[in-house]
Design a protein around this nucleic acid. Sequence first.
DNA 1: TTGTGTTTTATTGCCTCC
DNA 2: GGAGGCAATAAAACACAA
Length: 216
Amino acid sequence: MSMGEMPSTNSDIWAQSSLIGNIKKCKDNMRIRFNDEQIKSLENMFETESRPELRTKQQLAKRLGLQPRQVAIWFQNKRARSKSKQLELEYRMLQISYDNLGSKYELQKKEHESLFIQLQRLRKLYEKGANEEIQNEGNKVEIQVKSDKFVPETCSPEFGLPLCEDSRGVDYLGPESDILDMAQIADGLSGIENECRFESRTFLDDSGCRSPLWEF
DNA sequence: TTGTGTTTTATTGCCTCC
DNA sequence: GGAGGCAATAAAACACAA
């Protein structure tokens, strides 16, 4: 085929290939990319209708100098590309969401670790205080024997924990208040309060309070 | 220039719908 | 059963680094 005989449009190429009954040759040697204008028109149509009717495709093909089959294939491929892009986008969104969740988890984990440390320190303080209380009880018995003057041991703010009813409310947080920031503890424990009640000794005894939150 | 990866056009085979 | 859509794939065209 000389230059003078070269088909001028894709449509011509298709027509000639079909005429000579050689689709294979068209496939192998005559594949031509659509020009900018054709692509632009096809894109515009796709924006409004991704699955146009046969008639629309035929009209568009005529206007662009393409075979209706080519237009149909273009829309098919375009839908496939579009779907693939959409999937990619959704995957990225999910990935971002997953990463955010991971960050949140790490923050929560750190917070729980910090609370757990605070709880351990509290427990030590409490145990130390309980031992001293037992010792004091022994001493008091002796004192009572020696004297008629009885001093009731009702409250002990020594450990920063309220051990008795007080009209002033809970206000025994002493120098260790940095450790015993009860508000902070309460916040941290709010989620497990149903399982683990704030009750004197059992609160500090994890044998009576088995929450998965403490198991890091 | 060339090797390689990506994009685009087209085919094939299967499926669904009317 | 024919038309049209989709997924998978082939292969040409293109982009680009070395």
